[in-house]
Amino acid sequence: MNKQTNPASRTAKLYRMAMPDHLCPYGLKSKALLEREGYAVEDHHLTTREETDAFMEKHGVETTPQTWLGDERIGGYDDLRVHFGKETQDADETSYQPVIAIFSVAFLMALGLSWAMFGSILTLRGAEWFIAISMCFLAVQKLQDVESFSTMFLNYDLLARRWVRYGYIYPFGEAFAGILMVAGALTWLSAPVALFIGTVGAVSVFKAVYIDQRELKCACVGGSSNVPLGFVSLTENLMMIVMGIWMPLKVLVL
């Protein structure tokens, strides 16, 4: 980490776009980061396109913001993070953050519903809600861009490869089954849908990952996912299988 320690030198010069119709978000992030690191910021605004172009030509740079610490040009926001030893994430880097967010919020929502309905967070219905809400959230991720999802889905799903339209139907089926399971309604319809798509999905993922040993991105959280295909996607499908079996069984037993 190349961090300046001389108190007299802890002044940063920041040049960022601040136009009437565009306020650069990375410029604001750079300023906030510098201030958190204890720097006094000389904040220079580039207020027109012409001024910005002239600045970039003068300093031989292609982007703004640009930061100087003393006489050293650090660069843009990502360069500044690297300079201060902060983590940066490549756009193509795999990440579990989307599924962690989905399952965490679904879990907390299920606990909240359980508390509201039964006065306890540890209920069987709460566990059912957790899976059903997770299904709905995962379906929403796919439904944001069905075209991209279906394209990524074709990389590994066995049924979609035989019948391409299945890739477009899948997220609607997942949302449909999840919503009915949240309501506890029409189990005779929601359970077969969940069981079918869950089983096909589980077999497809298992074959692609554990038999063919392919390294693929998972379409489970949408068509722009950087989540690796494997345990998470298999878990999603197993959850649907469990619900597809449990919901009608509960009706028969209880």
Rank of each mutant, 00 (worst) to 15 (best):
E35K: 14
L249I: 05
V99M: 14
F130I: 10
G76L: 10
L180Q: 03
F196T: 12
P65T: 04
S95G: 07
G198T: 01
F107C: 13
E174L: 12
G60W: 10
T47Q: 13
L195Y: 04
N237I: 01
L108A: 12
K58G: 01
Q89L: 13
K142C: 09
A91G: 02
S9I: 02
M19R: 14
L122V: 14
G119F: 03
S95W: 09
S30G: 10
P228Q: 07
A160V: 03
C136D: 09
V61Q: 08
D157L: 00
A202Q: 02
L229I: 09
D212R: 08
V253W: 12
W163C: 12
A175K: 02
V99I: 14
S233F: 00
W188D: 10
H44M: 15
D21Q: 13
Q213G: 02
V193R: 01
V232K: 01
N226S: 11
S134H: 07
V251E: 11
A194W: 06
V146I: 15
A183P: 05
D157W: 00
S190H: 06
M109R: 04
V41W: 08
G230C: 08
A101S: 13
G201V: 00
L216W: 10
M152F: 04
F206L: 10
F107W: 11
K58R: 13
R49H: 10
S204A: 09
D145W: 01
L189R: 05
E42C: 04
M243A: 07
G60Q: 10
L80H: 09
G201L: 00
A91Q: 13
A177T: 04
I133N: 03
R125V: 09
W129R: 04
G38M: 04
M109L: 14
A139D: 02
P171M: 06
V209P: 01
I169N: 00
V41D: 02
N237Q: 02
L254Y: 13
C220K: 01
H45I: 08
A185Q: 14
E174Y: 11
Q144D: 10
A132Q: 08
A139K: 05
E62W: 08
E57D: 14
E50V: 06
W129Q: 07
G198C: 03
H45L: 12
F55M: 14
L252F: 14
P248E: 06
M239D: 06
K207F: 00
L34E: 02
